[in-house]
Design a protein around this nucleic acid. Structure first.
Lengths: 242, 242
DNA sequence: GTCAAGAAAATTATCGATATTTTTTATAAC
DNA sequence: GTTATAAAAAATATCGATAATTTTCTTGAC
């Protein structure tokens, strides 16, 4: 028998819909995840009727979710022609990386200036949670990859939580999710070649020591490495702008 | 007799819907304009049924337009609670101004580096169009205010048209529309006190002379003046961060 | 008067049906 | 074979009806 559509999926126990207050948000989160993880390939057409069946929501709700993804630039749209997954390219990744370094260090610098005891505690806690999942990453890579992404994001967000510029934080968040897409492609190649854990630890230590210059330099290197491992994978030479 | 709703408003001769391919875009453009101009007050509730009647579109279409405005941060939303016009504040304007200077000068610097003959011609043409409407601004302020805003935007966009970083341009555009809201509030007070025309001319001359440092400094001052005139109006002391 | 609980009203969220447009396929002329 | 045109199919965009939720109003106890 056919599984009936969840009128209010968010209310059900579905793990995917955690925190989604509306079906619209639920669809947004699932689509977002599928785009970032590459299940929905860059450049591919997003046909309403097909997705409607996949995600079990009405067409208007789905359109609203897709429109929401426009804000993250994970989806592009053209009037009367529909929606597509935003394409990716090396040029775009370079642009993203450059801007992301700028936003990340801007946010970190201000956060280091303003942060209080609670902020410090948040960083240490997020680092700990990230370390725990990293222990398991080697053994069961595929299973914990999503967890690692979540905790990695949470760690970096904890570090800049005390930044009072909402626009800096907003733009940083958009660029973070953009580069997350690219990171997924280079995850396997990256693994082992870099000691990401050590990078995080160094960033944390410099941040807690309120050494803004060092923390920012380490963050820039950290972000650059995404670009480098990605371009290395594709065997394309690249110059990292400073 | 009641005027019938335009099934495809974009197709009709309505001046407001120029360039709108879908009813959704039409609603988006009208809402956007009404928010920036202050017709829809900052912080006010955006009730679907009411707006539906005003803009003559269905509820799904309207929701999609409102969701689109979320990307511009001109509207805020909360699940099951609906939509509001994004509130404004002096703190937010300061944040916007600081970020906007950064994005604008970043875009301008790169544009000066990359610009060709066509780019130069575009700037001169946009400046000319802006000057023409400024002649009329003193006499018939209210009538040409919208025109002035359009041409002012087009001038600044022409100047950074050769910037190849789409993210810089994207963020700059968002921040520009944000500050446009604030400028509307301070437009009357600003008029006469500043020689905006002279500021534009100086920016253009420095840009065409490929003097990036000067052009950027003038642009920063130009943007700062929006903040200053706004805060002056509200009699609140403010420090301009450099 | 204030607070709480329940009923009524208002509002948001969702859906699937229909209108409109774009894309594909088929046919015909050159 | 290529191009142009017309018909058919597929897809997008739009709407208003209905379900679900939030907000407001009413009533009653203290």
């Amino acid at each position: 028998m056919e599984e009936s559509a969840p009128r209010m999926a968010a209310a059900s126990g579905d793990a995917l819909s955690e925190g989604a207050k509306t079906l619209n948000e639920y669809a947004y989160q699932r689509l977002r995840k599928d785009i970032i993880s590459g299940v929905l390939a860059p450049g591919s057409k997003l046909r309403i009727e097909h997705l409607r069946a996949t995600y079990q929501v009405g067409s208007s709700t789905l359109r609203e979710a897709l429109t929401l993804l426009l804000a993250d630039a994970l989806v592009i749209a053209e009037g009367q022609r529909g929606f597509w997954v935003a394409p990716i390219s090396i040029d775009d990744l370079q642009d993203i990386t450059r801007m992301r370094k700028m936003m990340a260090t801007l946010a970190l610098r201000e956060s280091i200036k303003n942060g209080d005891d609670e902020w410090e505690a948040g960083i240490v806690a997020a680092f700990h949670r990230l370390s725990r999942v990293e222990d398991r990453l080697a053994a069961e890579a595929a299973e914990v990859a999503d967890d690692w992404e979540d905790r990695n994001r949470e760690f970096h967000e904890a570090a800049i939580a005390a930044c009072t510029s909402r626009w800096t934080r907003h733009f940083r968040a958009i660029l973070y999710s953009q580069s997350e897409r690219y990171r997924r492609f280079s995850l396997v190649a990256m693994n082992g070649r870099r000691d990401v854990h050590a990078e995080h630890q160094a960033i944390m230590e410099a941040t807690l020591a309120r050494n803004a210059d060092l923390a920012c330099r380490l963050t820039e290197d950290h972000i650059d490495n995404t670009l480098l491992s990605m371009t290395h994978m594709l065997e394309i030479p690249v110059t990292v702008a400073r």
